[in-house]
């Protein structure tokens, strides 16, 4: 379970400050896919970075699996598999090397690690290039490697920031299918996106964030009925436009 309580995040210094999050609250139950929907700069990535302990809230508290994201940051990181839109891979190691390395960092025993790496390479159809240097990979190949790294230790909570960005249709489908499978396995998935169709198809519940505030939250039906919209795109524009006015 994930809980955000009045989480605020302010960036900057005395001269200039940016309020990235203005006291947001949300709760994600175990075994659901929760979507954070919002335009660029709405605060989605900041919220997910707080969740993954990379950032600390300026005020308020966030808990992941019962652990405080600041006080118990290592425990939180043990629980989650994190993929951020600004992550990258480079250098001379291959996908297999990277996945194995992160598996070892998560203290997976060698015997099960080897099997786990093979199954991820198989699942994401990476076997053909698994031993090539990642520096030679396309965006999609790198994204699949990063997802495999996030999932290698079989985390109970998966936090993916824009996972289908820049991917071709086939790769995007594979990634989304993997998220559905994770839900079936009882894992919690937090997904940030600005792609309406992805949010509509994937998420059990959604929060629309804009200018650092949660503007709407609930199931797809709840959001559609509260905004009087036919689909999510219309609801999104209604919420964001209302905010702009």
């Amino acid at each position: 379970m994930i809980q955000f309580q009045e989480v605020q995040k302010v960036f900057g210094n005395r001269k200039k400050t940016v309020h990235a999050l203005k006291g947001i609250n949300f709760r994600v139950e175990s075994g659901e896919i929760f979507g954070l929907l919002g335009p660029n700069g709405a605060g989605k990535t900041t919220a997910l970075r707080i969740l993954s302990t990379l950032l600390q809230p300026t005020s308020g508290e966030a808990h992941v699996g019962g652990f405080h994201t600041v006080r118990d940051s290592r425990e939180v990181r043990k629980q989650i598999g994190f993929l951020s839109s600004d992550m990258n891979l480079s250098g001379n190691l291959s996908a297999r090397d990277y996945i194995t390395f992160f598996g070892r960092l998560n203290h997976i025993p060698e015997v099960s690690l080897k099997k786990r790496v093979e199954s991820l390479l198989e699942y994401f159809d990476m076997k053909d290039y698994a031993d090539r240097k990642v520096a030679t990979y396309s965006t999609g190949m790198k994204q699949k490697t990063l997802i495999s790294i996030a999932l290698v230790h079989e985390p109970s909570i998966v936090v993916f920031d824009e996972p289908t960005n820049g991917l071709d249709v086939m790769t995007a489908k594979l990634v989304l299918d993997s998220l559905r499978e994770l839900r079936q396995q009882g894992k919690t998935v937090v997904l940030s996106t600005h792609q309406m169709d992805v949010a509509q198809k994937m998420c059990d519940r959604l929060a629309i964030i804009d200018h650092g505030e949660v503007k709407a939250m609930g199931t797809l039906d709840e959001i559609l009925s509260s905004s009087g919209s036919k689909d999510l795109e219309e609801a999104f524009f209604a919420v964001v436009k209302e905010d702009a006015q």
Binding site: L54, R74, F82, D86, N88, F102, L105, L146
Partner: peptide, 14 residues
């Protein structure tokens, strides 16, 4: 610069 550090920092390693 290459944005490869975040992946290490988001793992449980101290």
């Amino acid at each position: 610069e290459r944005q490869t550090l975040t992946i290490l920092l988001s793992n449980q390693v101290s």
